[in-house]
Design a protein around this nucleic acid. Structure first.
Length: 479
RNA sequence: GCCAGCGUAUCCGAGUAGUUAAGGAGGCGGCCUGCAGAGCCGUUAUACGAGGGUGCAAAUCCCUCCGCUGGCUCCA
C-alpha cells in the first residue's frame, strides 16, 4: 500500500509503527460557523482513508478534534452576546449531525480543546524547561530558533541553503513591536484580554494558542509518534509546521510518519472560502441533494486534488450514483435458480476482477476515481448480461454480487441503509413515516398499472409526471 | 519572489516509459418501450499546453517557456 507523504513530497510504502495498527490524528473544525462543502470534502477524504485502513485489517485509532476556543469563536460569541461555549457547542452539534447524515464513521475520540487544558499547561511548562519556549507579559511563545529545521518542514528546501534568510529575520526584529523575540515565534499561551474566557495557569489567566491543542491531544491520546496526521492543504502552514516544532521539541521524537493533506473544493476554479463569499453551506446542499450523491461527487475526484463545484458535476454524480443503486435494485429483484451456469460463472469472475482492481487502486494512495471507474465498468457489464437474461440469475452470482456491494459499502460508505434494504427486499428505509409513503406509492402504482392495461395513457402519464415532480421516479415495465 | 500541485476530446476525469490512451457526463443516431425513464449499441473521439533533450520506445523521465490553482503566520 502506498501513501503520498506531504513531509517528503513522495508516495511511500505505508508502514505502521505497530503491525496491523494505525494511530491517526485529523484536524477537525473550528466551531465558529456553519460547515460548507469544503469541510465536507476534508471529512469524507479522511473517512475514506479510515474506512479503507479498516477494510485492510488495520485496527485504527483515530482522533479528530474540535477547536472550541479561539479568536474567531470569542469574536463571534461577543457579537452575538452569548457564551463562547454555547456558540461552539451549537456548531459542533450541527457538524456531528452532518457527519451522521453523510455517513462518516465515528472516530475513536473527538476531544475539545477545552478538555485538555491541564495537559496543555504541562506541555508548555516542559517546553519552557527545555528552552524551547519563553514567557513574556503573561503570554508564552515558542522559540522557532530553538528548532533549526523549522523552515524546511513542508518546504522542499535543504537546511544548508537557509542561512541567509535566518539573518534577515534577526535584522527585522525591532520592526515588530511585540513580546516575541523573533517574529516567527508563535503563541502557545495567550494572556487574557478584558472580557475573554480564561483558565488559570502558571503565567496568569489566559487560554491556549491555536496550535498547541493538537500537539497535546496527539500526545495524550495517541502517543509520541503517530502513523498519520491529516488535515486540509491550508493547514500545512503555519498550523502543522508549528505542531511538528512543538511536539518534536517536547518528545525529541518524530511527530508523525505520514502527513496527509486533502485538496480544496473550488468554485469557478477558485478556492471555496468564507472570505470570497463563494461557499455553499452543507445545510443548503443537503436540501437539494441526496447526501450519498454529495459523497459520490466528492469521492469522484482524488482526495489530494481539488474538485470543482458545479451543477453539472453534481448532476453527473447523481446519475452515476443512481446507476449503482439501479443495478442493486434490479439484481435484488430478480429471482434466482440454484443451478450454476457458464454465463454467470463468467460474470462472477468479472466481479472478482473488478474487486481486485478496486483494491489495487485504493492501495495506490486511495485512488477513488479509478476505483469508481472500475465500478462503472462492472455495472455496464452486468446490465448487459441482465438485459440478455431478464428473469433468472444464479444464486451463486447474486451472493457474490451482494458480497461485492457490501465491500463497496465498507470502503466508500455509499449505502448507509443497505442492510435494511436487503432484508425488506426493496430500497428505502423502514421508518414508520417512510413505510406509509411506500405503501401509498404501491397503491398508486397498482392503479397506474390498471390504467395502462386499459390504455388510459394520458391519465397514467400525468400521475407519473406529478410523482416525478415530487422526486419519486417510477419506471414502467412492459405489460 | 520561494515552495507545491496542475494543464489529456464539448465537459468531468484516469493513465508516470512499450496499452486499441480507462471510466463517466452531454450531444447525435439506433435497439427496446404505448410513450417517457432506465438499460444496451454506435458516434462525437487519429484528446496528452508549447518547444527542445535522453531512450530502441515519452502523456509518462530531464530542461526551458506559457497558462492555471494553492500555500508562504485567518482557513478543511
Amino acid at each position: 500500500m502506498k501513501v503520498y507523504n506531504s513531509l517528503t513530497f513522495k508516495k511511500e510504502e505505508f508502514k505502521t509503527i505497530t503491525p496491523q495498527e494505525v494511530k491517526m490524528y485529523v484536524c477537525g473544525i473550528t466551531a465558529y460557523d456553519s460547515a460548507h462543502l469544503g469541510h465536507l470534502k476534508s471529512a469524507i477524504s479522511f473517512d475514506i482513508i479510515h474506512r479503507y485502513l479498516k477494510f485492510k485489517g488495520f485496527k485504527v485509532n483515530i482522533v479528530k478534534n474540535y477547536t472550541d476556543i479561539d479568536d474567531k469563536i470569542i469574536n463571534r460569541s461577543n457579537e452575538l452576546g452569548i457564551d463562547f461555549k454555547e456558540l461552539s457547542e451549537k456548531y459542533i452539534g450541527e457538524y456531528e449531525e452532518f457527519m451522521e447524515i453523510i455517513n462518516v464513521e465515528k472516530e475513536t475520540r473527538n476531544p475539545r480543546a477545552t478538555e485538555v487544558i491541564p495537559f496543555i499547561i504541562n506541555f508548555i511548562k516542559e517546553l519552557i524547561k527545555k528552552g524551547h519556549a519563553y514567557e513574556r507579559n503573561g503570554s508564552v511563545y515558542f522559540s522557532v530558533k530553538s528548532f533549526p529545521k523549522y523552515k524546511t518542514i513542508f518546504q522542499n528546501i535543504k537546511l544548508e541553503d537557509l542561512e541567509d534568510e535566518e539573518e534577515d529575520y534577526l535584522e527585522d526584529q525591532d520592526t515588530i513591536g511585540e513580546d516575541k523575540i523573533d517574529p516567527r515565534d508563535f503563541a502557545l499561551w495567550k494572556k487574557m484580554k478584558e472580557g475573554e474566557p480564561y483558565w488559570e495557569s502558571p503565567w496568569g489567566k489566559g487560554r491556549p494558542g491555536w496550535h498547541i491543542e493538537c500537539s497535546a491531544m496527539v500526545l495524550q491520546y495517541l502517543g509520541d509518534t503517530i502513523d498519520i496526521h491529516g488535515g486540509g492543504q491550508d493547514l500545512k502552514f503555519p498550523h502543522h509546521r508549528n505542531e511538528i516544532a512543538q511536539s518534536e521539541s517536547y518528545t525529541g521524537k518524530p511527530f508523525a510518519n505520514y502527513f496527509i493533506h486533502n485538496g480544496f473544493v473550488n468554485v469557478d476554479n477558485e478556492k471555496m472560502s468564507k472570505s470570497l463569499g463563494n461557499f455553499f453551506l452543507v445545510s443548503d446542499l443537503l436540501k437539494q441533494y441526496d447526501p450519498m450523491v454529495i459523497r459520490f461527487f466528492l469521492i469522484s475526484s482524488h482526495y489530494r486534488s481539488s474538485i470543482n463545484y458545479s451543477l453539472e458535476n453534481l448532476k453527473q454524480a447523481e446519475k452515476n450514483y443512481n446507476k449503482l443503486i439501479n443495478i442493486i435494485k434490479k439484481i435484488n429483484d430478480l429471482t434466482t435458480v440454484s443451478k450454476s451456469s457458464k454465463e454467470f460463472k463468467k460474470l462472477i469472475s468479472q466481479i472478482d476482477k473488478a474487486a481486485s482492481n478496486i483494491i489495487k487502486a485504493m492501495d495506490d494512495d486511495f485512488d477513488t476515481p479509478v476505483a469508481i471507474a472500475e465500478i462503472m465498468s462492472l455495472i455496464r457489464e452486468l446490465n448487459k448480461a441482465i438485459l440478455e437474461q431478464k428473469v433468472e440469475i444464479t444464486e451463486e452470482f447474486k451472493d457474490r454480487f451482494f458480497k461485492f456491494i457490501e465491500n463497496i459499502d465498507l470502503i466508500f460508505g455509499f449505502f448507509p441503509t443497505l442492510k435494511k434494504e436487503l432484508k425488506s427486499g426493496v430500497m428505502g428505509t423502514t421508518d414508520e413515516k417512510d413505510k406509509l409513503v411506500k405503501d401509498l406509492i404501491e397503491i398508486i402504482s397498482a392503479i397506474r398499472t390498471q390504467l395502462r392495461k386499459r390504455n388510459i395513457y394520458d391519465l397514467s402519464d400525468k400521475i407519473r409526471e406529478k410523482l416525478r415532480e415530487l422526486g419519486i421516479n417510477i419506471e414502467d415495465p412492459k405489460i
